[in-house]
Amino acid sequence: MNCQLPAVKMDKISNFIVLMLFLFGNSENPASVLIQYRLIQFDRDIPENGKLSRTLKNGKEIYRKFCLSCHQKDGSGVPNTYPPLIRSTWVKGNKTKLILVLLNGLEGEITVNEDYYNGYMPKQNKLSDKKIASVLTFIRQSFNNASSVVSPKEVKALRGK
């Protein structure tokens, strides 16, 4: 059985480095080691793997242009201002809710990873169905998330809702 997701591929050497950094690096905050590791991951090329890798590559470009400045390169967000996409149930969970965040934007009190935010996210409805689908697929398969793809059809069905 194929046991690897292309987007979350972790080779043995980098895992060993992370483990060692975690254990021997004297960071007060082990999470930051993981964050630094994820940065390396963002900079690394997505492996060639047919159609999915094309979607992920496009998604990464959209992310760079339309999301990165707020949610940051590693998806960690900004404390009290921009919520993280890392392990967020908003990202990993229900696709309808996630698609609507992009189509309609989001404002007001929300909880992400048990942390509270009360901000404003602009709607991204000028992006095409395909672009929204690919950026959502990208964030669902990056930043330690490993969830299913979002298709342009699913986005289309929710426009104007």
Partner: peptide
Amino acid sequence: IMSPRDAH
């Protein structure tokens, strides 16, 4: 500091 979240 690559992300504000890195700062202690």
